[in-house]
Design a protein around this nucleic acid. Structure first.
Lengths: 349, 349
DNA sequence: TTGAAAGCGGTACCAA
DNA sequence: TTGGTACCGCTTTCAA
């Protein structure tokens, strides 16, 4: 059944040379002759040799794997990020171990401990925890590391994400330009993304001299991890207010999904009665009940850049300076905010 | 920066006992005294000892990781499956390495080779390839292994999935009962799930003495991996037919998403003019343009059961008989197929 | 109940 | 250009 693996040793004996020579030949070490390398390569193919990674790890002290912890694997945004990371590191022979924290700081901590115990060569984290303890823990271990999507206050480490304040600003301004007068916000949790977007929302209103009504900022039920159902509840609350908002900036696309559901249930039209905008540009955002306007966050790029950052750190001799990569969000306009006839078709008065 | 790890050796020296004693104590080996174990445990906590997995792997021949290859990580269905697997194996100290084949057999092959090279202790695969070569390859390596979601003809190996014929049958019958007379099918690819669901669709029609119109079975563009956009195209084609269908059974939820978009664009109503049903009960299926009726496939359970299957195989001495776990699909009725007023409100004539 | 020795399959250092 | 030797940290076998 499980026939014994081919070892370096077997190839060496076979060729009548030393193990170490084969080892070097495989890794294309400069001090082996072309001829020998060719012979070795030949034999490797014939015997279908595969290096033993445990042995290699033990000898080099590297595990050739990186750990990725996200709050929710099923969220299309994080799934895209993971895909981006995976694609990027695979090219260098690295594999990705994933875990989901389910938006729970304690669980996140556990998953990280687990990966550190497994000696991952790097860690990439979208943290569910605004506190710095977890980041400190990781850094005290000296593992190359990057935060993504959500920054942590006071942390000096690699970060790849989008300017959240800009997202909130952009989304809100878009609704203002679409003619909304009473813009509400379903805000996210008390982490950098949630906080930044609220800030951007308020800044945009201020910039247009629109008064911020605190009651128009509602938060999703914090006990609920599922953004869509909690977006639904939050929107229902907004709909009881008088006057009813005519535009809503949602924390992210799943939240917008829930909001849309509540709006339809109330018998209102989107975008005529109420315009909706999300954030994330998740895969299915264009196919919703009403195609959803959103702010693109470059999910795949976040994965790619963070992966590159930690890979560089892995191969570097001395510790590198932490780097912050802030990607530029981009407005994607779809039906859910198209309140005016398109200018090209029928100029508004 | 990277202070040297604590080793078994350090603990042993510290306590004035032998390395092997510590090793046994850690693994709760029966021949170590309670007292010694307690002392060791104590010291381990104090020094924050973490075993070196590379060393352990090398000595035991196990890698304590399992590889999971799915066609698309961003697809909520597969994401749920991965989550289920991860949760299940984590408890036993195993980690999950993931890769996406992007629905490409060649890429799938590559990812599998990669994982085999990394000596995963087990492999779980939702194959993009209907041919048996890949399965044979895996089995020739003697790695514990399970296919999920999609079976492969001729393969004798573990399989965990849903009865696809039953899915097709159930969905179609539901539309018949909802009063649809001209039921079309947007079929999936030429793999077990696609084939099984078509078969179920035809069987259900036959059972109700409805003639199958071949032109009502359209396939998504095979060159397209994105089910939603290809569902859209397929539906557009169906809408050009005369008579226009009044019901459509979609291969899966993303396909239904695309179909719904096309239907709305054509100015038709769902479900009054055209009822739509999907499969998968993906996370956002209830929040779509029209809440989508679907067939639940127990995604999390698929992950869990497949994980248990391979974990058992890993810990078993002799090879186990391949097992097939067929889960029972379940109809989820939502708005997209509610054509009649609800019986409780207004009995139909 | 405890421990000594050998070995898992590689890599690095240094000598030939 | 090639290779001997030691060692990475843990587990298994068998003896004390």
């Amino acid at each position: 059944m499980n026939r014994p693996r081919v070892r370096l040793r077997d190839i060496a004996d076979d060729l009548g040379i030393a193990v170490i020579t084969v080892s070097k030949a495989i890794r294309n070490h400069p001090d082996i002759s072309k001829q020998t390398k060719a012979r070795v390569q030949e034999r490797i193919r014939q015997l279908n040799y595969q290096p033993n990674w445990a042995a290699r790890s033990l000898a080099t002290g590297k595990s050739f794997s990186i750990g990725v912890v996200v709050p929710d694997l099923v969220h299309p945004f994080f799934a895209e990020v993971v895909k981006g990371i995976s694609a990027e590191v695979r090219a260098e022979g690295y594999s990705v171990m994933v875990a989901s924290s389910e938006e729970d700081p304690a669980m996140e901590r556990q998953q990280i401990e687990f990966f550190l115990g497994r000696q991952v060569d790097a860690l990439i984290l979208a943290s569910a925890d605004p506190k710095i303890e977890t980041v400190d823990l990781i850094q005290s271990r000296g593992v190359p590391f990057a935060l993504i999507d959500r920054s942590v206050e006071g942390a000096t480490c690699n970060f790849v994400g989008v300017d959240d304040e800009r997202i909130g600003h952009m989304a809100t301004e878009h609704l203002i330009e679409a003619g909304c007068k009473r813009i509400a916000h379903i805000r996210g949790p008390e982490i950098s993304t949630g906080i930044g977007r609220v800030r951007g929302y308020m800044a945009a209103l201020a910039a247009h001299r629109i008064k911020v009504r605190p009651e128009y900022i509602v938060s999703r039920d914090s006990s609920d991890t599922r953004a869509d159902t909690s977006g639904y509840e939050a929107m229902k609350r907004l709909l009881t207010m008088r006057p009813v908002p005519d535009g809503v900036v949602c924390y992210n696309d799943p939240t917008a999904l829930g909001a849309i559901k509540a709006i339809f249930e109330a018998g209102l039209r989107i975008p005529q009665d109420l315009a909706v905008i999300g954030a994330g540009n998740d895969r299915y955002a264009g196919e919703l009940r009403v195609p959803l306007s959103t702010i693109d966050q470059q999910h795949q790029t976040i994965g790619q850049r963070s992966a590159r950052l930690v890979m560089r750190a892995i191969s570097s001799e001395e510790p590198l300076k932490p780097k912050t990569v802030l990607l530029v969000p981009q407005l994607i306009v779809r039906e859910s905010t198209m309140r005016k006839a398109r200018p090209s078709l029928q100029p508004t008065s």
